[in-house]
């Protein structure tokens, strides 16, 4: 397995607070890597650094595509990380375009591909050029993902009117529409019932098997232990453990971080 994302000594400081402290880990191609840890451990901060929403205080984030192209994410602008480095993401609190239809949400995600077909906009405004064909392809791709998440029947409904679980799935499908090599999911199973959680597992495994690697933050240990290939545990911005799910489960450092044993005080967790 080759390394897809390598995080080297990543540090993110907010004023006097070190949210992430010299963190290093790797995510391999074709695997599901889970990042877990108690609340406030710095997981979402790591995600925001990887996806360009924060500029890290120091450290390196190197992404290597399966075809060998290399990107230094710490120096790239947020929208370029999605567009060129092909890192997709979802958000802890769902961020759909609530007033737009489900289908529109998926088409907005293909903005750059579709935009390239509009001939600087002028041709497409006049109804010329190859935009029509491009849009048809875009709709086909959206339809593929709608089938995958079981929302084809609701394609024309506003995204904000979908039930919570469906919104989570739609957000994942939308992120997949940018054709990512790495998909970062921030608590995808939060608020899902066991059945929806099971569907989510299947969806995520399907995405992995189609060649997109996943990085996920998750609190639901059922999901983490069942689908991840590799787990990184954070506490107070530091890595405290790294390994397969079975190894993590047996690691005393992880147990103490979660249960507040040892020298850690509970209020900080």
């Amino acid at each position: 397995m080759t390394t897809l994302l390598s995080v080297e000594a990543l540090t993110m400081r907010f004023g006097g607070l070190k949210a992430v402290d010299a963190l290093s880990f790797t995510a391999r191609t074709g695997e599901i890597t889970a990042v877990i840890g108690p609340n406030g451990a710095g997981k979402t901060t790591v995600f925001n650094c990887i996806t360009g929403f924060y500029r890290p205080t120091s450290g390196a984030l190197a992404l290597t595509h399966p075809n060998g192209e290399k990107y230094e994410l710490e120096a790239m602008q947020g929208h370029r990380i999605a567009r060129q480095a092909r890192v997709g993401r979802t958000f802890q609190n769902i961020r759909l375009f609530a007033g737009m239809s489900v289908l529109e949400n998926l088409l907005v995600a293909q903005h750059n591909t579709l935009m390239a077909a509009t001939g600087l906009g002028v041709l497409a405004v006049l109804g010329l050029g190859r935009y029509r064909a491009a849009e048809r392809e875009g709709v086909d791709k959206a339809r593929f993902w709608l089938d995958a998440i079981g929302l084809t029947a609701r394609a024309d409904d506003p995204a904000g009117a979908l039930p919570y679980g469906a919104q989570r799935r739609l957000e994942i499908a939308r992120a997949m529409c940018i054709d990512p090599v790495l998909l970062c999911l921030d608590e995808p199973a939060a608020g899902l019932n066991p059945r929806e959680s099971e569907e989510l597992n299947r969806l995520l495994l399907g995405i992995r098997d189609n060649g997109c690697s996943l990085l996920l933050i998750e609190h639901d240990m059922g999901v983490v232990m069942r689908i991840s290939d590799h787990v990184v545990v954070l506490d107070h911005g530091r890595k405290i453990s790294d390994g397969t799910p079975a190894e993590i489960r047996a690691d005393p450092a992880v147990i103490s971080a979660y249960l507040g044993e040892g020298d850690e005080d509970e209020t900080a967790a």
């Binding site: 990380i81 961020r95 737009m100």
Partner: peptide, 18 residues
């Protein structure tokens, strides 16, 4: 569509490479 998406959620737009 990107304009309307921008009105709805700028952060999400950025995450989609817009």
């Amino acid at each position: 569509r990107a304009w309307e998406a921008l009105r709805e959620d700028e952060v999400a737009c950025r995450s989609l490479g817009i």
